[in-house]
């Protein structure tokens, strides 16, 4: 690795940190507004003047200034470490997200594999948080999170195999590049039945991965107060929050890259090829990629404010009795189809 490469990597990492922070601010504001209007409310309206646009900025400042309380009975080193592990898990995944043809942190040849591996790191942090808090609600939440996230890794992995099988690659860049040339070439539309099922299963299971409603039993307010982060306050709590929203974007980005054509515009002539302009191509690619991912983030919010929380048994039922057989049959039929027809 040359010095320039190193510099570029660091610049990308810093840029992503900035993007994650800004995205979290916007997404939290958006979530409050979306939820409010779905319930015929208005949401925050005062802070910052126009429709309370700076509410989340003010909240962040508040969280920065709050006292960082560590319970006496807590396992202090683990307690302090846990939020950073959770955030690292979700932040590391950004390295392989292909924002544009030439805007990707690390185009490693096992991109998807790395992503699945790294995103399950979060569950260790959550378990640490729950255990170290020395609080029964936190521990319950952490155990639920572990059970849920480990279970849903399997349908996620199986449904991710569908685009991998079609692109014959694990590299995020190549997975996107096979979808070039208009929205009818996107994986979700080009192999409709298989890819659509895989898309739905992945998107649905990713809600469980990010611990969001309807799969938010790890932090079920009415049962566990706040789950694994019940004892956290101030900036450490903010890290969990940031990780949740970073994760939301990551799973949406994966769906975008693998199923919805990544950085490609829906119609080919809206793209700027790398040969024409390096910066223009990166900008327009990042625009399309982020737009698609943001749309999916909004759908996640939409689902959150529509569906009630599942019971633990229903959660496991959906995972093991619905998603698993469907993704197995899906991948088998697709393999057969690929083997016979291609």
């Amino acid at each position: 690795m040359t010095g320039i490469d190193l510099l570029l990597s660091v610049a990308f990492a810093v840029g992503v940190i900035g993007f994650v922070s800004v995205f979290a601010l916007v997404a939290i504001y958006l979530e409050r507004k979306v939820s409010a209007h779905m319930q015929d409310r208005l949401g925050p309206m005062e802070t910052g003047g126009w429709h309370g646009w700076s509410q989340t900025v003010a909240d962040t400042l508040k969280l920065l200034l709050k006292e960082d309380i560590i319970p006496t009975a807590a396992d202090k080193p683990l307690f302090k470490l846990a939020p950073f592990i959770v955030f690292t898990g979700s932040f590391a995944a950004w390295a392989v997200i292909p924002f544009a043809a030439n805007l990707i942190g690390a185009d490693i040849n096992i991109g998807v594999f790395y992503l699945v591996a790294v995103s399950s790191l979060g569950v260790i942090g959550i378990l640490m948080a729950g255990w170290a808090s020395n609080n029964k609600w936190a521990l319950y939440g952490a155990m639920r999170a572990a059970a849920q996230m480990v279970s849903y890794e399997i349908p996620i992995g199986l449904s991710l195999l569908v685009p991998i099988l079609l692109a014959e690659s694990l590299s995020m860049k190549e997975l996107v590049e096979v979808q070039a040339g208009g929205f009818w070439h996107w994986t979700i539309f080009s192999h409709l039945p298989f890819a659509l099922i895989a898309f739905v299963i992945y998107f649905w299971a990713s809600l469980a991965e990010t611990n969001r409603t309807p799969f938010d039993i790890p932090e079920a307010e009415s049962e566990l107060v706040a789950g694994y982060h019940v004892e956290y306050s101030g900036m450490r709590f903010a890290m969990f929050f940031l990780a949740e929203y970073a994760n939301m974007f990551v799973v949406s980005a994966v769906v975008t890259a693998l199923f919805l054509g990544g950085w490609y515009a829906p119609i080919p002539w809206l793209d700027i090829p790398v040969e024409t302009s390096v910066v223009g191509s990166a900008a327009i690619g990042a625009f399309w990629f982020s737009s698609k991912a943001m749309l999916l983030v909004v759908v996640q919010m939409w689902l959150r404010w529509t569906l009630p929380r599942l019971r633990v048994d229903q959660l496991m039922h959906i995972c093991w009795k619905v998603f698993m057989p469907f993704s197995f049959v899906n991948i088998l039929l697709l393999s057969l189809w690929v083997a016979l027809c291609q």
């Binding site: 979306v34 209007h37 779905m38 319930q39 015929d40 409310r41 208005l42 309206m45 939409w302 529509t306």
Partner: peptide, 21 residues
């Protein structure tokens, strides 16, 4: 029923809010 529920929440998005500032 999930789609139905999503339609219900979506249909409330453009509705007039009942909040009074």
């Amino acid at each position: 029923t999930i789609l139905e529920g999503m339609w219900v929440t979506f249909s409330h998005l453009p509705k007039r809010t009942i909040t009074v500032q």
